[in-house]
Amino acid sequence: MPETMIESRGLRRVYRTKKHEVEAVRGVDFTVERGEIVGFLGPNGAGKTTTLRMLTTLLEPTGGEAIVAGSDLRLDPVGVRRSIGYVAQSGSTDPEARAGEEIVDHARMYGIEAGTARGNGEALFEQLDLDGMWDRQCKTLSGGQRRRLDIAMGLVHQPRLIFLDEPSTGLDPQSRANLWEHIGRLRSDLDTTVFLTTHYMDEADVLCDRILVIDDGAIVAQGTPDELKRRVAGDSVVLDFGDQRSTVVVAELVSHLDGATDPAVEGTQVRFQVPDGASALPLLLRSMVERDVDATGVQVHRPTLDDVFLTMTGRSLRDEDQGATDRAAA
């Protein structure tokens, strides 16, 4: 089995419509190693789906190349298809068909024999809270159930590499947590590599070993969730004191701290930002003891991925979330 599951070099896609051209993906380079859970984080229209559809052989790249699960995208698309699973953003089942039939038929298109297909399908139904849905027509399932059925379909042939396009959109919080747990187990139990897209930063944060931040067709940052947050926004530190005298002393100490921003003093509170709060704080506390100053309260506030996105692009992902919720409600 290859150690590198995805290697994308300069992958690019231009959509040509009658009036204009849209460069949806502007040449992305990245690698995904075996057993990693990697997430594409970016707002709607960033180019996540387009990249996924290229990597899954559904869409021909305008430029660039990629090796997916050991096969060359252009030279051996069937080889790629054999090794991967794909859960599309917008559904995969016929409303009139029964859930169980759909998953068995889908597995059989990978050459899996009927009995095994049924066994795999039933196990996934149980793990994804779809018990009792086997004989139900897909149109009678709730949105969340249908989404979980999509995910089960993508996994039924036990692919080595699974692509999930916005897997948790439309799921309630409990189903999302359940799904995250399931995705975590895929890696630990089956050594499956997971590549997913999301515009939810909490999802990227909780689930992904590594995040590729994508905006307007280009990767603007990548790293572990912690690396990204450390690199961009820094930690917020808030110290509370019993008296005004201490704040003056501490403000002076902070100004000598490596990489810290100018401290803001308000009443008996001192606030500042520092690239890595967890390692800066012990130093600060030791020098406070030397100067005989005691804090009554200490908070280190980790930045969120939203801070990252804001710093990289000048826009907030939260607005995007809000927009998505509004559209779903409409």
């Binding site: 559904l58 794909y86 599309a88 995969s92 089942t93 016929d94 889908h106 298109m109």
Partner: peptide
């Protein structure tokens, strides 16, 4: 209708 439901794409991603 099948295409809109995503059935065609889901079949096209298999080695069939």
């Amino acid at each position: 209708a099948e295409w809109r439901a995503g059935v065609v794409e889901r079949m096209r991603v298999t080695p069939a």
